[in-house]
Design a protein around this nucleic acid. Structure first.
Length: 577
RNA sequence: GGCCCCAUCGUCUAGCCUGGUCCAGGACGCCACCCUUUCAAGGUGGAGACACGGGUUCGAAUCCCGUUGGGGUCACCA
């Protein structure tokens, strides 16, 4: 454990172009954990949240808000950053006076640094049109070389500066002619030769800084000591390092080189990069399967114009907005793969479980329990105590939904029943209020039956689905009817008939009492419990699968139980002829 | 294609830095059996990996080189 006295500052810097996806969430988790650990050690640590909205066209306030909310839901709160209120707790603020935290509001800061670079002849205006640049790239491509932009030899600086005063232009950084080596905490040293680096743009035509410039300036101004980000940024880091060496504060102070850590990519099981498009892909595939006729009926309910809908169907690169996509998926009956944090929330995953799983993607404590097994289940506190970059793996990893699901199921099933009830209720209130309404005062009974079988909050209702429909809506599975109600001697239908009397006279309609009554009946008749329980299950649920017998009957209520049994007996008689 | 990065069961990984204790351990998934009124849960067991080829060494999953494979990146996006 390092006892550095200087505080550690990490940051998470998403661009608000969409929801927070799991890769971003893991990056945020690791960066957060480093700051948190430093805080706990007494050295001091801060976690900064900065919104990188320099792309005016693609950024949206809605996306920013969504990301804030996702982070807050996960419990990754930031010390410096946009103010946000979550469950009565305030997150963010600008205690250190390093804000604002939206880059679009920091333009004047970037401008000053750009100007200083230009004054020092370390940056220069350039006037090439996009078409010209495309042509240059094409040429390089044809020559099988990396395209690098360089300030021409005979560049007339004064003339160009004058021209820049009147004409729209970009500003490019004059890259020092040397290879750049960057130390990376997870990958080691990475060297990129000068020939691969070019005079990249630091200020765009619209006056906004490019990503490269804004990150470097902001990380310095916000005192960031550890830059943790995805490996897709690795190739950018030498550029940033060169910039950091060139940049000076107004008083001449140099910029400090932060520690860098590039996290391996998280991929799909098929090795493709996890992307929001995966959801469209899944929906599109299902639509094809369903067929055109069915789709004609469906698309009206989705809330997308017919033209747009068909364009989406044909064009693999198109995406449908979130809500319509959800509706479409529900209509055609597919489960969309979750890729964003909010998708997992909607699907009924616990934030602490998602975080636990994400922590394991690329990191491992290396610790074993008493039985010599890897420790894989832990809470945030445990994680923060041992997280370190040196134990982050270098290889990319695939997102294994089955394992996440198993973690979630285990947590849900072992949770204190009261907590399960509260959380499930809250989830239903938010996403499926109609289920809550249908359950009414049977909610607690339902929760007892659902919890041991729940994998997510979303599917928790499945084991008690029979209690959510009317008696007449129960569809009898014919195989079950044959096997359980019609075969054997006495057959199930006959047992049910006898059972009716017992149940009718039962006053106490609690799970225990029901169970005792059924057991007493079985014993009295010399029947195995299966001979009693299975016919009842078929009668109540239409199938042979349900929660405990007492719970099942209690859940539907006495009257409904009797009606369903009568209906089943009748059905069996008809089926027999 | 250029450059950069990576490589242990199907998947996530422990082990690698500090070669021998590894005919490679765990988790998820899969299979079988047990428990059992069904399901779920639980219990027990099983199949399942050091990408390949060269070195170095008495000895290599561990060190070196190459091959192959995978990924990332080549924007006035971030």
């Amino acid at each position: 454990m390092a006892h550095t006295d200087s505080p550690i500052v990490t940051r998470f810097a998403p661009s608000p172009t969409g929801n927070l996806h799991v890769g971003g969430a893991r990056t945020a988790l690791f960066a957060w954990a480093i700051a948190q650990r430093a805080k706990n050690s007494g050295a001091g640590g801060r976690f900064v949240l900065r919104i990188e909205d320099t792309d005016l066209k693609r950024s949206s306030e809605e996306a920013s808000r969504g990301i804030l909310e996702d982070l807050a839901w996960l419990g990754l709160s930031w010390d410096d950053g946009p103010e946000f209120e979550s469950g009565g707790v305030r997150i963010g603020g600008d205690e250190r006076g390093v804000g604002p935290f939206y880059q679009a509001q920091r333009k004047h800061l970037y401008d000053a640094f750009v100007q200083r670079l230009v004054d020092a002849d370390l940056a220069y205006p350039a006037f090439d049109t996009p078409e010209e640049l495309d042509a240059m790239r094409a040429e390089a491509q044809a020559a099988k070389k990396t395209f690098v932009y360089r300030r021409p030899e005979g560049y007339d600086r004064d003339a160009m500066l004058e021209r820049a005063a009147a004409e729209e232009h970009v500003v490019r950084f004059k890259l020092p002619p040397e290879a750049v080596t960057v130390r990376d905490e997870v990958l080691g040293d990475v060297t990129v030769p000068y020939e691969e680096l070019d005079d990249f743009i630091i200020r765009k035509r619209d006056g906004m800084p490019t990503y490269h410039f804004a990150v470097v300036v902001d990380d310095e101004l916000m005192g960031v000591t550890d830059v943790v980000r995805g490996q897709e940024h690795l190739n950018n880091t030498p550029r940033h390092a060169a910039l950091i060496r060139a940049l000076r504060h107004e008083d001449g102070r140099e910029f400090r080189m932060p520690r860098f850590a590039h996290l391996p990519v998280i991929a799909n099981p098929d090795n493709s990069k996890m992307s929001k498009r995966d959801r469209d892909k899944a929906a599109r595939a299902k639509c094809r399967e369903v067929g055109v006729e069915a789709l004609v009926q469906i698309h009206g309910r989705v809330g997308v114009g017919e033209g747009d809908f068909h364009a989406w169907l044909e064009d693999k690169t198109r995406q449908l907005p979130g809500e319509p996509l959800e509706r479409l998926a529900a209509a055609v009956g597919v489960d969309l793969p979750e890729v964003a944090v909010d998708d997992f929330r909607r699907s009924g995953y616990l934030p602490e479980v998602l975080l636990n799983y994400l922590a394991l993607l690329g990191w491992n404590s290396g610790e074993k329990d008493e039985e010599g097994k890897n420790i894989e289940r832990f809470d945030l506190g445990w994680f923060v105590e041992r997280f370190e970059l040196s134990r982050v793996g270098k290889g990319s990893s695939k997102f294994d939904r089955a394992k996440l699901l198993s973690f979630n199921a285990e947590t849900l099933q072992q949770m204190d029943p009261e907590r399960f009830r509260e959380l499930w209720r809250a989830w239903l209130e938010r996403y499926e209020p109609e289920v809550l309404a249908t359950l009414g005062d049977r909610f607690e009974l339902g929760a007892v039956a659902a919890q041991p079988r729940a994998k997510t909050f979303k599917d928790a209702k499945e084991p008690v689905a029979f209690a959510l429909v009317n008696d007449e809506q129960i569809v009898f599975d014919e195989k079950a009817v044959q096997k359980v109600l019609l075969k054997g001697d006495p057959n199930g239908a006959a047992v049910l008939g006898d059972l009716l009397g017992v149940l009718r006279s039962l006053e106490d309609w609690s799970p225990d009492a029901i169970h005792a009554a059924a057991e007493g009946f079985a014993k009295e008749r010399g029947l195995g419990m299966g001979k009693v329980a299975q016919p009842l299950r078929v009668a109540i649920t239409g199938n042979t699968v349900s929660p405990g017998l007492g719970e099942t009957l209690a859940l539907v209520g006495k009257d409904a139980t009797i009606r369903r049994i009568e209906r089943a007996v009748e059905h069996a008689q008809n089926a027999a002829v």
